[in-house]
Design a protein around this nucleic acid. Structure first.
Lengths: 202, 202
DNA sequence: GTTGACAACCATACGCGAATGTATGTAACT
DNA sequence: AGTTACATACATTCGCGTATGGTTGTCAAC
């Protein structure tokens, strides 16, 4: 094969990541081979090894493509200082679920994260980064609830427990929805579900 | 090796399952080889292939060893007809978390289920059985909430949504705890956490 | 209560495919 | 001209399933 232009090379890189999403989802990360991914992308393993060091590197790139934007948004919400922070957090949760229902790529990637990969050996680093992110999120949420409680707008619920509850409830929703998306009508139930969850902390 | 007595054979079977728990947890189900499991159990692959058909069969046996008793208990709770069913359900949730914190075997196996296996190909059947169990559990919980609401002891919350919320909240707690057990003091926090969760439906 | 004989229980050996990483080739972009 | 962006070829390793071998419980039969 001849050499491609820089833009074309970037395009094949994206093709490989697209193919990785499909193959990981279908076969699981561990059982997926780079040959399958390459074939699904219409290239050979040579191309994959040119753009990525190995399978873990492909996985990380695929993950960053969808998670980094979401993380930014989350940090943005938590930085809110005014008294409407809880409402903003609730809105963020609803929007997060709606975007999950509407964005097929997010759906695929998070489905892989929750149900199609084993976070060990080569993916151990990715997992620890994920856990670190969630720790920061939890701490921020705890601080948020603490501030709100000081303002007297919330009942006397332990901020730490409240943050853990919201966090795990959303995790469980993601987990269960992605296991069987057809069992949910997330488009219509996202808001009621989040409202119900927030009833226990407000 | 010579032939063992029937009791000794059953013991090596248990040894293999014990070893499978450790190896699956350490290496993930997909990357774990039957040779590793055999070595950890102090036998050879011949013994493994005598007691089990393949890796999926080992996985199923390991899973049934801890899940079947728990499932029985759950069905028992849901069969309660009197007005204290919600309290019984809440108690069951607390006890479920406490037993998770105290029983190392349950901890290992559920950790494998949530974080160390990809439910595809050979494990697809196991997964569908799991989903079917959860469906029945959800339906029973929904019926429970419907009955309780009819008695007027609960606020006007959609029974389906209530059941889904409790279910996913517990799923999320399992998921997050098993990812990092040291981050929780489940022994002391199980009851407060479950109480907080149930605040949104009662 | 012996005694064969069969089968249970497990170890060892073999063949096979599949996946990985690297090394090398090659044509075109810059 | 030199490097980029791949394709192709090669060597190696690993794990699976099965086939085979060997020892000893187990139990019917006498």
């Amino acid at each position: 094969m001849a050499r491609r232009t820089k833009a074309e090379a970037e395009q094949t890189r994206e093709q490989i990541l697209d193919a990785a999403e499909a193959v990981f989802l279908d076969r699981g990360v561990a059982r997926a081979s780079l040959a399958e991914i390459a074939q699904a992308a219409g290239v050979t393993r040579g191309a994959v090894y040119w753009h990525f060091r190995n399978k873990a590197d492909v996985f990380d790139a695929m993950y960053c493509r969808v998670h980094l934007p979401m993380e930014d948004l989350f940090n943005q919400v938590l930085a809110l200082e005014d008294g409407a922070a809880v409402d903003a957090l609730r809105d963020y949760c609803v929007q997060s679920l709606l975007s999950l229902a509407r964005n097929p790529r997010r759906q695929r990637v998070y489905s892989i994260l929750f149900h199609r990969c084993e976070f060990i050996d080569e993916l151990r680093d990715s997992n620890e980064r994920l856990i670190a992110i969630q720790h920061r999120g939890l701490a921020s949420m705890e601080a948020l609830f603490r501030r709100e409680r000081a303002l007297g707008t919330l009942p006397n619920v332990c901020p730490r427990l409240a943050a853990v509850t919201i966090h795990t409830a959303m995790l469980g929703l993601y987990f269960d929805y992605l296991r069987e998306p057809t069992a949910y009508d997330l488009e219509n139930q996202a808001a009621p579900l989040v409202d119900l969850i927030f009833r226990c902390v407000s």
